[in-house]
């Protein structure tokens, strides 16, 4: 379904901040895979997702989605294959536009946009139904401006927008990191529900070890621009935080250096 081959990217080439963000990364996703991606700051998780989404063009390597090479496709062209939710709740929605207008924009992802009216009444009914499933009461606020919503509501809406039109691949880039713990758990549960109900293939970047273990059928750990662990199947199901930390130390030869991940690991 998704094939990433020998991806490399160098940031700030020739400056003091030069950084090899991805080093020869290869990974293949099967249809229906729900992969969690974990790693410390600067490990390359978000860079990998951004390369797949077309935000960055890799220096070397290839990206295929369903056998089609998309490496040189622009971000907006690739959008027809992808659903994306960002870390910043402000980033995934247009705050000055209404809830229904945002959904209508998402519903036309990958379609030609012409001079037809931007939203139809039939769509409105459909959006109302879809919003009901979020259980946030948004179905009664279709015309409310999105800037009036809370961060959690905006992420839930973005999630719905990303999946309103079935994407080939759903990319979740630390989409709960900016939320309070309770809201984060709600949005995570919602993500899992939507992925399961639609049978989506998904990649979820997270800082939280427990979330990385609890969700998905496969776990990838990155460190310093490389994939150091790739765990799936039974092994993934039986994974514990301690085992994951030990595996990481073995694989990378260093301690898992990430305050946020360690902190979120501690509270049980």
């Amino acid at each position: 379904m998704l094939k990433v081959k020998n991806l490399s990217i160098l940031f700030n080439a020739g400056t003091i901040n030069e950084r090899q963000a991805l080093k020869n990364v290869s990974v293949t996703l099967q249809n229906g895979d729900f992969v969690t991606v974990i790693g410390g700051n600067g490990a390359g998780k978000s860079t990998l997702l951004n390369c797949i989404a077309g935000v960055h063009t890799p220096d070397r390597g290839h990206i295929y989605i369903d056998e089609t090479e998309v490496t040189n496709w622009s971000e907006h062209k690739r959008a027809k294959l992808l659903g994306r939710v960002f870390q910043d709740p402000m980033m995934g929605t247009a705050g000055n536009m209404g809830i229904e207008e945002n959904l209508a924009l998402a519903y036309r992802r990958g379609n030609f946009r012409g001079l037809r009216w931007g939203i139809s009444n039939a769509e409105r009914a459909m959006y109302r139904e879809q919003l009901k499933r979020l259980e946030l009461g948004l179905e009664d606020r279709l015309t409310a401006k999105v800037r009036l919503l809370s961060g959690g509501q905006r992420q839930a809406l973005t999630l719905l927008m990303a999946t309103l039109k079935q994407p080939k691949l759903l990319l979740l880039d630390e989409h709960t990191a900016a939320l309070d713990p309770k809201t984060a758990q709600k949005v995570l549960a919602l993500s899992e529900k939507i992925i399961a109900e639609n049978g989506l293939t998904a990649m979820m970047v997270t800082h939280n070890m427990r979330d990385a273990i609890a969700y998905g059928n496969r776990l990838i750990m990155m460190n310093d621009g490389e994939i150091v662990l790739d765990i799936s199947g039974e092994e993934k199901k039986n994974l514990t935080v301690e085992a994951l930390l030990r595996a990481f130390e073995r694989a990378s030869g260093s301690e898992f250096a990430n305050d946020r991940a360690l902190l979120s690991m501690g509270k049980k």
Partner: peptide, 21 residues
């Protein structure tokens, strides 16, 4: 219209607009 909405979305949030194609 659809095209007008896409211009408004672009002015409001370019990241979102690109992510929506």
């Amino acid at each position: 219209t659809e095209i007008g909405c896409s211009i408004r979305a672009t002015g409001n949030n370019q990241n979102m607009a690109r992510a929506q194609g």
